[in-house]
Design a protein around this nucleic acid. Sequence first.
RNA 1: GGCGGGUUGGCGGAGAGGUUACGCAGCGGAUUGCAAAUCCGUGUAGACCGGUUCGAUUCCGGUACCCGCCUCCA
Length: 465
Amino acid sequence: MTEIRLTNTKTRKKEVFAPIDPENVRMYVCGPTVYDRAHIGNARPVIVFDVLFRLLRHVYGEEYVTYVRNFTDVDDKINAEAQRRKDAGDPRTLEELIRERTDETIRWYHDDMNALGNLAPTQEPRATEYVGQMIAMIADLIRRGHAYEKAGHVLFRVRSYEAYGKLSGRSVDDMIAGARVEVAPFKEDPMDFVLWKPSTDDLPGWESPWGRGRPGWHIECSAMSRELLGESFDIHGGGIDLQFPHHENEIAQSMCAHPDADFARFWLHNEMLQVEGKKMSKSLGNFFTVRDLLDKGVPGEVIRFVFLSTHYSKPMDWTEEKAKQAARTLRKWREMTEGVNVAGNVPLPVLQALADDLNTAGALAELHGFARDGQVDELKAGAALLGLLGDNLGAWAKAPGIVLDAFAERLGALRETARETKDYVAADSYRDALIAAGVSVSIAKDGIVLAAGPDIDLAKLKALK
RNA sequence: GGCGGGUUGGCGGAGAGGUUACGCAGCGGAUUGCAAAUCCGUGUAGACCGGUUCGAUUCCGGUACCCGCCUCCA
C-alpha cells in the first residue's frame, strides 16, 4: 500500500497518514457560503481536496472513502439578498426567497466546480437541514459547562477549553491583548463566540430552548461532521484563512462535546490565491469568479492545471501567462494521448509525488517526462489521477470543425506552380497568411497538412478564400 | 501589536546536506527551396548576514522585503 504523508497543521509536521478505518476513510472540507458565484479563490481548496480525494480513493478503494463538503446556507448575506428581492416587490416569503437564492447558488457552484473537473463529494449537507443536530450539540455544551445563555444568545466559554488556540498557535491572552473587535457586553470573556443568536421576525429562525433564533457560523461544521462522519474522523480541510477562528472554534466545540474522541486527526490548510501578484479584491479591480474566467474562454482544464502547478501550501499567483502556457501544454498532451485507453495503472512516480504531501507540481513534472519520452499510456494514466486529460474536460482542445481542404489544395497548387517557375513568392506569402490566421501549416514530402491552431482567426481565414 | 507563510536561474516552479528537477523563453544543431511545426543538444540559480559541517541553496539563528490571518470575505 502506498504510504501517504501529509502536513498536519495541528502538529506543523509532515506525518504518515493512517486512517482510523481503512474501509471508511473520512474527510470533511469546509464548503462555500452560498450567497453568490464562487470566485476564483474559492476554487483552490476544491481542487486541492479533490486531488486528495482521488488519491485516497486510489489507495484505499473508491467505495471506502467518504468526502463531506458542506453548504453554508444560513448567513446574513443570504438574508440581505433575499430581503432586497422582497423589497423590490417579490410577493413570496423571505424563506422562499432565501431558498431560491441558495438553490440557484448551489446550482452555479456545481456547474462551475464540474467545469474544473472536480468529482462530486460523497455528501454535500446544507446547514439548514442540520439545525436540529446543532441545537442538540449546543444544549449538550451548556450541560457540560462549556457554554452559557445570555441575552438570548448562547456563547461558547473559551476559558473552559484549555487547548483553545492550539491549532492556530495563539494564546487567548495574546489575542485579547491585540484584539480589535468590539466586545459584546454579555460576553463573560472577550474571546467567547456565538453558538446561537436570536432572530427577529424578519429573519429566518428556528425554535430552540433559547427562543427563536439561528446558529452561529462555526457550530454547523461540528454538528454535520459529527452526524455524517462520527466523533472522530481522519482529515479536516479548508483554506488557511479558516484556521482562525473557524477551525479553532470547531475544535473547541467538538472536543468539548465529545471529550473522549479525537475530532479530526489531520488538519490540512491550503494557502491563498493571488492575482497577478496581488491580493484579489474588488477594490483593486482584479476580482473575478470562476464563471467569468470560463466565459472569457479559459477552459476549466486549463484553470485546473494552473492551480495544480503550485503546491497547496504556498501562495498561488493566478496570471494570464500561466494560463497560456498551461493551455499549450494540455493541447500537446491531448494530441499525444488521443485515443489512448487508460489501463488503470497509475505510474509510480506520479503516485509517489502525490503521496508526498500532495506534490501536484512534482506530479506534473513527471507527466512532462512521460510526454517527452513518448510514454503516452503513463501520461494519460498519471494525468487521470490529477483529474486531467479526461473526456469530461476535453471539448475545448478539439480543433474547431473547420474544413481546411480548400486552403490545402490552393496552397498545393501554388507550390506546384512555384516549383516549375522557381518563383516561390506567391506560395510563400499564401503560406504565411495561413499561419498568420492561426493555421498550423505542415509541408512534408507526402503532402500538406493544415490544422486549426488554438488562436485561429476565422475572419482572416475567410479573406484567403 | 499577536500569529503564520513566502523569498530559487530571463519567467514559472519542485525535490534533495555533496550527483541534471521540470516547463516556457533564449541559444546551437537536425530537417526544410525558405519557413512553421517537430526532434536533438544546451541552463550550476537559490534575498542578506552569521553558525553547525569535510561540504548548505537544502539544517539552526538573525536581518530585510513581500503576502496572509487576527474583522463579513477561501
